[in-house]
Nucleic acid binder design. Sequence first.
DNA 1: ACAAATTTAGACACTCTTGTCTAATTCGTC
DNA 2: GACGAATTAGACAAGAGTGTCTAAATTTGT
Lengths: 229, 229
Amino acid sequence: MKLHVSPDTFPPRGHEAKRLSIVDSAAAVFCREGFAGANIDLIAAEAGVSRQTIYNHHGDKEKLFVAVVRDLTERCNAGIFATIATFPDQPKDLEADLIGFAVRLNQNCICNRDGKFLRKLIQTEGERYPELFAEWREQGPGRTWPAIAARFARLAYGGYLTIEDPDVAARQFLGLVNAELQTTFMLGGSPREDEVVQSATNGVRTFLRAFGKRRSVTSAEKQSALANA
Amino acid sequence: MKLHVSPDTFPPRGHEAKRLSIVDSAAAVFCREGFAGANIDLIAAEAGVSRQTIYNHHGDKEKLFVAVVRDLTERCNAGIFATIATFPDQPKDLEADLIGFAVRLNQNCICNRDGKFLRKLIQTEGERYPELFAEWREQGPGRTWPAIAARFARLAYGGYLTIEDPDVAARQFLGLVNAELQTTFMLGGSPREDEVVQSATNGVRTFLRAFGKRRSVTSAEKQSALANA
DNA sequence: ACAAATTTAGACACTCTTGTCTAATTCGTC
DNA sequence: GACGAATTAGACAAGAGTGTCTAAATTTGT
C-alpha cells in the first residue's frame, strides 16, 4: 500500500497545483492593478478557482501578497544563479561570450514573466513593506551582484580584463548592457529579442573598450571590423 | 485701475495657489498609494483644502491624475533642459566637468521630488494610460536623449572624445553614472549626495576609459592619480 | 464695506470590496 | 461505490470610497 507521505506538505497533490495557479494569477493582477486595486474575485477568476479557495490557502489579501513576492524572489534568484553558472570563465571569444551571457541574463531573469512581475512589485509596493523588500534586497542584489563580481574578478585574474574594482565593474556591466532598455523597463514592457541583443552588443563593446586588454590583437581587429556594422 | 488680466487664467490668484497645492499633494499620495489606493479625502487633507474644491478644480479622480502627470512631466522637462544647458561644451577638465554634469542631472532632475514622483507614476500606472505615457515618452526621453547626444557629438567633434554613435554613447553615459543607484531607484528611495557623486565618478571614469582620447596626458595622469583614492 | 465668487463642512446615495458563513458538490483514495 | 477532504457558488454584513448636493462661511476685488 502507498503511504501518502509523497511530497512534503500534508494535503494531496491537486492542492499544490491550485496554490501555484493562485499565486501566478495573483502576481499578474497585483502587477496590473497595484495592491489596492487588485480584486480578489478577479484573481480567483483568472486562477480558475473560487474566492473561498484563496482564503482557505492564504488567509487574507496581505498574506497572499507576501506569498507572491516570496515565490517570485525565490524563482528569480534560482534563475539568476543558474545563468551566472554559464558565465564565460575561460572565454574563446570574449566579446561574443559576454554578449551571450548578457542576453541570457536579460532573457531568462529580467525580461521573463517572473522578473518583470517582481521588478514591478518592488517598484510599486516596496515602500509599503520595508522588511519584505529588505529581504529581497539581501537575497537578490545582495547575493547576485557579488557573485557576478567574483566572475569578473576571475576574468581579470586570468588576464582577460583590466579591472580595479570588480564590484564596480559588475554594476557597470549591468548598467551598460541594459542602457538601451531603460524606457521599456520603465513602462513595464518586454523588449523584443533583437533590442536585447542590440543593447547587450553595444554595452559589451563599450565595456571592453574600457576594461579589455588593449594589446589583444583579436579584440582590436574585432572592434575595427565591427565599427562598420 | 488694474485690469484683471494678470496671469493667463481667468479666476483670481488664490485659485492657482490652491490648484498647485492640490496637484502637489495628489502627486505624493498617488505615488505612495497607487491610483486605486489614493484617497481623495486624504489628498484634500494634505493639500489643506476641502474635498469639494478638488472636484471643482479637476472634475474627478482620473482627470486629477492626468493633470498630475502632465504637470510633473512639464516641470521635469524644464529642469532637464536647464541642466543640459550646463553641459561642458569646452571642458577645462573633462573628467571633472562630466562628473559635475552627471551629478547636477541626478540631483536636479532625477532624484528631486518631481523626478522621483514622475518616475514612480510612470512605473506604476504606465500601462493603464498608454496615450498619456506615450506623450511622456515623446516629450521626455524622446527630446532629452537626443539633446544630450548632440552635446556628446559636439565634444567628439571638438576632439575631446572618440565616439561612433552619439545616441548610444549618451544612453550608455546615463546607464553608467546611475549604475550604482539602481537598487535605490527601484525601491523609490533617494540616494544620498555622496552616493550620487560616487556613482557619477565611477561612471564617468569608465566612460572616459572607453571613449576618452587615450593620448591625452592630463587624463592619463588623472586616472592613475585617482586610482589610489 | 459690499457684492460676487470661491471654499467649506457635512450629509447623502451609490457602488465596490473584503472576509465570513453555509450548504451543496466534486475530487481523490481506498 | 463509499468515505472524507477539499472546492464551489452564493448570500451576507460591514466598511470604505467616489461623486453630488446644499447651505453657510470665507475670501477677493473694488
